[in-house]
Design a protein around this nucleic acid. Structure first.
Length: 320
RNA sequence: GGACGGGUGGGUGAGUGGCUAAAACCAGCAGACUGUAAAUCUGCCGCUCCUUGCGGGCUACGAAGGUUCGAAUCCUUCCCCGUCCA
């Protein structure tokens, strides 16, 4: 196999409610592109309103990928996302379409562009055993195990961070090597593509206002009904999508564990915190052209288009 | 008019003489994060100064006075709020 020519791909990053989806469609129409969601929640079928999937009307006939590809009881992982995205990229290459990623999940973009180390997949079995042990033993048990297996990792992970400790121990046990060592090898960056990154970074307080307004709008569009329907459809209570912001709160409201009003309030709150975490992650992303505004604002769109055209011509390929 | 209960930092709220710039929680801010990532976790959080130290100064628990070596904590008066009696 020859090394394929390097083609440009676009990554639109930005916190939730910053208007990525709308900008993506607008750009796709002008650049001959198709949209690929890079979002851990839009992957799931049935969870539509609260994950802010673009509606058919909003897609305006532009093809969208990696939305609705998983059943609620399936697990996503960064590695799994990477594989799917690479498959889509292959398809777009063949059809000569510009890939435009709407990136909400920073880890997934990184996994795609920079690759992941050669790590084993998660093992539910092992995880269950580790968790059980943690409950029985004194606090700090997992951290002590990791300390023995891989001191360097143990120093980086907080004793309270069970999720990361379990993962680290899991990798050490399955590979029989320290995680910190495994991390140093085997990362394969994406080949054949050159990423043009545009970031949306609206003013904090305006973004928060949008978050509030959008939560309201989602409810008005029947979000609660959607959740009611999902509850009735019978998949496990611990299915991954019930972790998503809003879904867990609305479910609690429907189960009588909190008032609807409280659920709405909690949802807004969680969304704001989420937006903040996204911004923290994105700030570290390299090579991003930042725009201070929302993706549905005319001047932001025009500017995004201009910067992309520049980038595309440098990449020496399509762009009309 | 009378009897109780209460007024604490952005919010809720603990604290009844020193260990208290004041628990805890929330909000806020900053950050970490290579297979759960809309997850998980960490730090900061009155103001200020610097030689950034378990450092110094100032302000703070409704208001004003007082007791005390020392008060959010005790006393007095006043102002507000709640409940009950008239």
């Amino acid at each position: 196999m020859k090394n394929p020519t390097e083609l440009p791909l676009v990554a639109l990053l930005g916190p939730t409610a910053s208007g990525k989806s709308s900008l993506a469609v607008w750009l796709a129409e002008r650049l001959g592109g198709e949209v690929i969601a890079c979002d851990s929640t839009q992957l799931y079928r049935g969870f539509d309103i609260g994950t802010a999937k673009p509606t058919n009307a909003e897609r305006r006939g532009v093809a969208h990928h990696l939305i609705d590809v998983l059943d609620a009881r399936e697990e996503t992982t960064a590695g799994g996302y990477r594989e799917r995205a690479i498959a889509v990229l292959g398809d777009l290459r063949e059809r000569q379409k510009l890939p435009i990623f709407t990136v909400g999940t920073g880890l997934y973009l990184r996994a795609l562009l920079e690759g992941l180390a050669e790590l084993p997949e998660r093992s539910e079995d092992l995880r269950a055993r580790l968790r059980a042990a943690a409950v029985e033993r004194a606090p700090g048990h997992l951290h002590r195990i990791l300390w023995k297996l891989d001191r360097a990792s143990a120093e980086k992970i907080a004793a309270a961070d069970e999720q990361k400790l379990v993962r680290a121990i899991e990798v050490c046990l399955l590979t029989k090597k320290p995680l910190s060592k495994v991390h140093q090898s085997g990362r394969k960056p994406l080949e054949g593509w050159r990423a043009l990154k545009i970031g949306l970074m609206p003013k904090r307080e305006v973004l928060y206002e949008r978050v509030e307004a959008r939560t309201r709008t989602m409810l008005e569009r029947g979000w609660l009904e959607e959740v009611r329907g999902l509850l009735g459809s019978g998949f496990e209570e611990d299915a991954k999508p019930w972790d998503f912001i809003g879904y867990r709160e609305l479910r609690a409201a429907l189960n009588g564990e909190m008032l609807l009003e409280e659920a709405e309030q909690a949802t807004r709150q969680a969304t704001r915190r989420y937006a903040k975490r996204q911004m923290t992650w994105f700030r570290r992303e390299k090579g991003v052209e930042w725009l201070e505004g929302f993706g549905d604002e005319e001047q932001i769109r025009v500017e995004a288009l201009a910067r992309l055209r520049e980038g595309l011509s440098k990449a020496g390929s399509r762009g009309r």
